[in-house]
Structure formats: C-alpha cells, structure tokens
Design a protein around this nucleic acid. Structure first.
Lengths: 209, 209, 209, 209
DNA sequence: GATGAATGAGTATTCATTCAT
DNA sequence: GATGAATGAATACTCATTCAT
C-alpha cells in the first residue's frame, strides 16, 4: 500500500507536468506511460480513465494552491500584503509556467479554466474574511465584499496570467484595487515592488528605459 | 465566383453554428458536410483545413461583433451609454447563447477564448476613443485609458458571461466602472436597467425583492 | 485442504452464476474476484485459467443435471413419465433461467452449447436403457434406440429452450415422441399437463380459449 | 458507385470467409483489412462497425440460402424430393464447410445460431406450402404443418450439421420424416442416396490406409 | 494460502486529409 | 467546380496472466 500510494503520486506528478506543458488533449496515455516508463496496464491499474486522471491532477493542483494561500493567510504580515500574497500564490509557479516556453495558452485553456473556476470558488471565502478584517480595522471601507473579492481575482487572473502586461497595467491595477476596497490612495503601491512586468514580446513595441 | 462565394458563406455559416453548438473539437468534418449535404472533396475545395475553417468562422464572428460595436459607437447617445452599449454588443447574441441550452461552456472554451482575445484587441482602441471623449467633456477623469478599458472589458466578460451573476455583482460592477473612469457617483446606475440578473440556479438561494 | 476445497467451491459457484447471467465472454476475471472479494492472485491460485474455470463450471453443471436425471431414473414411476421426467430435468432450473430476465440467449450460447453437447452424450445411454426397458415391456416398439433418443433430446432442447412455444408445438412434440418410440397413440398425452406454453410475446398472435 | 458497390461486396465476401473459418470473435478488423489489403479507414468507409459487418454478412448468407431454396422450390421434381432438396440447400456449402478443416464448431456458434434462427423463420412458410401441396395431393397426411416443418428443420440442422452422423442416424431421420408428414413407409428412402455419412473423426477409428 | 502490483499484446474506432476522375 | 473512395496514424481502453513478497 505504501508502495502503491507512492507510485500513484509519481504518476500523478508526471501526468500533471505533461498536461501543463502540452495540454490535456495533446497528451496521450501513451505519452504518459512512455514518460513514466510503465506499461499501459499499470496506468489503468492506477487510474480509471484519462479523464479521471485529469480530475485528480486538478484536485492536486488546487490542494497545493489552497495550501499556499492558507499559509500566507496565517503569516504575520499586514492585511494588504496578505491579500496580494494570496492572490499571487494562486498563479502557477514560475518554473511550471515556463515549461517548454510560455505555452499554457492555447491547448491548456481547458485545464486552466477548470482549475481557475474551482480555485476561485474556494479562495473567495478566504479572501473575504481578510477583507472584512481590513474593514473592521478601518483600513478598507466597502460593502458586498465577496463580489468585490471575485472581481479582484478575475482581474488579477486575466491581467497577469498572460505574461503580457506593462507598468501601466500595474498602475491601473493598483488604483482599482484601492478603490475596490476603499483603501487609502497609494496604500497598495507596494505591489509595484512585487510584480515586475515581463520582458516579453509585449515590450518590444518600443518602450524606452 | 459569385456562386462559389455564396456557397462558401453558406458553409461558413453551417460550420459556425455547429462549432458554437457542439464545440469545435466535437464537430468533425464529416458532421459539417453531412449537415451541408456536400462531398468531402467539396469541403476541401473551399477550405484548406478544419483549423482554417475555424479561423474564418472566428473572423466572421468578430466582424459581426465589431460591426455591432461600431454602429453603437456612431449612434447619438450619451457617452456612458455608448460605452455600456459597446460592451453589451460584444456578448454573444442571446439566440446563439441559448442554442441547446446554455452550453458554450465546456467544449467551447477554446473558440470562445480565441474570439474574446481578438475581439478585445480590436475593441480597446474603439472604446478608448470614447473614453477620451468623455474625459475631454469632463464626464470622466482618468489616465492610462487603454489599460482601464481593458480591465473594463475583462471584468464584463468574466462576470456576465457565465449567466450566473446577481444584483450585487451588478452593483459592484457599476461602482467599479465609475471609479475606473473617474465618473460621478451613480452616473452609471442606468446599467441596472439594462442588465437583469438571470433566473438561474444562482438565484435559488432565496433572494427577496 | 478442507478449507481450500470449500473456498474453491464457493468461487466456482460465483463464477457459475456470473457466467450464466452475463455470459462467459462478458464476465472478466476482475468481475469474478470483485464479486468474490478476493485478490487476483488468489483466483489464479485456485484456477489455472479462465477457460479452465469454465470447464470446471460446466463439469459442475453437468454433474448436477446428471444427478437430477439419475434420481428420476431411479424413481418408481411409469416408463413414459420417466423419460419425460429425465428430459425435463435437463432444462436449466427455472430460477437460473430467469436470472435477470430470460437472458441466456445471446451471450450465453457458447456455454449453453458446450453443456448441451456434453450432457446429451451422457444422457443418451441413460435414456436408451429406459427406452429398451419400455421395448421389453411392450410399451414401445422401435430399433436404433440411441439414435432415436438423440433425436428426442435434440427436439426437446430446441423446441422448449426458447421459452417460445405454443400448444401446437406441444401437440406435435407428443405425436412425434409416440411415433419415434413406437408407442400407442396418446400414450404420452400426459405431457400436456407437465409443460405449459409460456405467456410470452409468442402468444400475442391472438390465441382463443 | 459501380466501383464502390463491387468493393463492398468483395469486402463482405472476405469478411464472410474469415468469420466462417475463424469465428466472428476471433477475427479482428485488422485481420480483415490485412486480408483485403486495404487501409483501416477504407474498412470503416464501407462499414459502420464490425458488428454491422456481421449483420450484413449474415444477411448475405441468408439471401443466398433463400435463393437456393427458392430455386429448388420452383424446380419440377416430386414433392418429397423438393422438401429434402430445400432442407439440403440450407446447409453451408461443402467448400466453405471445410475451410481450414471442419472447424465451424466452437468459435462460430454465435454466427451459426444467428443465421439458423433467421433462416428457419424464413424457410418455414416456404416449406409449409410445399407440405400443404403434398397433403392436397394425398402424399402426406398431417395437421399443424408449420410446427411439423419447424421440427424437421431443427432435426436436420442438429443432426447433419455436425459432420458426425451415421447410417443409423439417417435411417431414423427418414423414419421420423415419414411419420411427421404422414407419408407412406419408405417413401423417403431416397434420402439415403443423397446424404452420405461423413468420413470424419467419428469414423476414423477403423479406416485403413 | 493469499496478495496486488505490473504487464503488454490486442481491439475497435475516429478523423483530417489527399487525389484521381 | 465537385465528387467520394482511399488513407493511416492516432487513441483510449481491456483483460488474462505472472510473480515477488
């Protein structure tokens, strides 16, 4: 049992990496077993189907991300930093992000979307609590907190996911965050230090130093 | 030529409807030709490949939506209404939306996403101009206009696409729109009259009037 | 040994029931061990192969049926009744017959056929002896007894197996039995009381009372 | 169309031969296409599925056999000969019979059974008419004709199909046929000239050379 | 006696694409 | 312009069997 458990986690990890780097649809069971060096029967000994494997992979990813978010939540840092920290923790780890270039866009939308949806659902209550705390402490001032939190998440996801954002995007994001939460102007300027716009094709248009 | 053109548009329309209702991946070339009543060879006479068909379908969709947006742009209505009108025009037409229920979620993400991305790119400059106009007229007050417009689009897409939003979502959306643009409080309250939250499971929690 | 024997019989019984109800081909080893609650290895500890399991199951079935036939043979009833009794005892027990409806037709032909063949071989000598007795007693009058017995068996199998026979089938069967054996007319009319035509779709043609 | 039709018949014939010689279950689609020298796609261009191929093969076999039976029916020979001729025409052609030995027993039961069932259904009315004619002409004397015809078919199928019958079997068969139909004794003795007991393993015990 | 992890050959089916006519 | 026969690589999944522990 020990042995089987370990093996399964191994396989899950391999599947995860392949799904992320090549996309779920473009990863065949044959690919997975070749990478894992196991026989087809072994794969089906551990997984009911390819789809169920995806389900488990997603579950694993979500667990990891929620765990990361929770650890930020419990750390002794100021509330605004906490919020941004949690939001940042949701983003795929940079290493994974760049497996085989920055793909994760075309073929992966499905998995990505699935993860995002389920993740957002789970994170909204977490973040809402933190925001409420902020309101109680007088740092923020707003109503309809869960709805605002949802917007924050949507925005950060969409804007920062593409590795294709600029300093101006960050400025506007900061502005909107402050206003969404009713925070003091520039109270979230620290975000600028955390996120650096990528040196991607998006920059090539001729930004001067 | 004449005849060929017409035929092609017909095929494009059939492909479009099938892609939307069943999803691109789930629509085989065989499905399309069966629906169209033509031979395999004929299909490949008009289209290089299935993927290229998708490209053309998407192009068609975008053209339609840009056209709709432009007509709003040129209509003689107040600037805030114009902006909202343009945003609303981007949403899939209600008829299409409900082809075979509200599917368009699981299988269709790919096409959806592709359309959205290219659409947003094209609409940003359009909307930016309108916002600038508003700033000149003193209705709005903000900088980094294209970035703000992008956020507006992202938010409206994500929030309203799911047919799963509430009155509170609308309230927050209005608030955020006003603040994004630096508009007077409640100057965009008219949105409430335009968009009604759907009567979907999302409502079942027991909302009172 | 004691314990192992019991276990094996248990498994055999489970396999038997599954083969009968789902068909040999449609019953996987996995199905059997799941039903039995044992491990793969255990199954192969008791059986060489799935096919050999079938052989043993069939052997078991035949033993049971021969046993039933023999008990009829030894009972103190008139010879014609004995013959019919033996023939009737060969038919699958009604309970099994109706496991999950009247299946035992499409998927099960293989096992059925195998059983029938081997059963017929074993039953022919048994019945032949009874018929000979009848000849000696002057009840019957015929030659080539084993061949006649075989025909009797073939006929009863084919006609009555299908749960799809009528009063007329029975009439003709009685007639032919009498003539096959050289028995007096109507001397086997008692069969009518033993076998009732089924109330199946076969009857729907509109038989009047 | 001409071309496609021909090709399909060719494939059907190949499939037919393989199903007969190896059994349906033991014939893979790969086997068929290898034998036919076509690509997999071509196979599925002509057939929806393997199962549907079987259906068509069976339909073809039945058509052929019905055709043969009908030609006997229309030939100007005495009624008893007609009956036996029709029954004989139902048996698989000798050439096919011996494809790869006399196998056709274990793996083929399914197809065999399917054909037999549907064939018997179609042949019963044909034969019944002939028997009625015989009754009208005073050659036969019996009631419940369709039921008697069914028994005749069942018997001849079972007895002669196995390539494993003796002179005695033929004698009894003749006897029973005469009595089933109420024909004069020995009026069907001509059967002996038509059917010869096979030189099969059943006989092999005492064959010299 | 019993386990369960590992195997791998085998199977039917799909589908975008080509091309001679 | 239009046809439809032909292709073949790709794919997910099954299952009887083995064997070290």
């Amino acid at each position: 049992m020990r042995k089987g458990e370990r093996r399964k986690l191994e396989l899950l990890d391999i599947a995860y990496k392949m799904f992320v780097s090549k996309g779920y649809e473009n990863t065949s069971v044959d690919d997975i077993i070749a990478e894992a060096g196991i026989a087809k029967g072994t794969y089906y000994y551990y997984f009911e189907s390819k789809e169920q494997t995806l389900e488990e992979v997603i579950g694993m990813m979500i667990d990891k991300e929620i765990e990361a978010a929770t650890s930020v939540l419990e750390s002794p840092i100021p509330i605004p930093q906490k919020i941004i920290g949690i939001i940042a923790s949701l983003r795929p780890a940079p290493e994974e992000h760049s497996i085989e270039g920055a793909l994760m866009q075309p073929e992966n939308i499905i998995m990505h979307q699935k993860v995002k949806q389920r993740l957002v659902e789970k994170v909204i209550p977490l973040l809402s609590k933190v925001v409420e705390e902020g309101v109680e402490q007088g740092i923020f001032s707003c109503d309809n907190i869960p709805e605002r939190v949802k917007m924050m998440l949507v925005l950060s996801n969409e804007i920062f996911d593409e590795d294709n954002f600029t300093d101006k995007d960050i400025d506007v994001f900061i502005d909107i965050m402050e206003k969404l939460l009713g925070a003091a102007a520039n109270s979230m300027g620290f975000i600028r230090q955390l996120i650096n716009p990528p040196k991607t094709p998006a920059d090539k248009k001729g930004k001067k130093k």
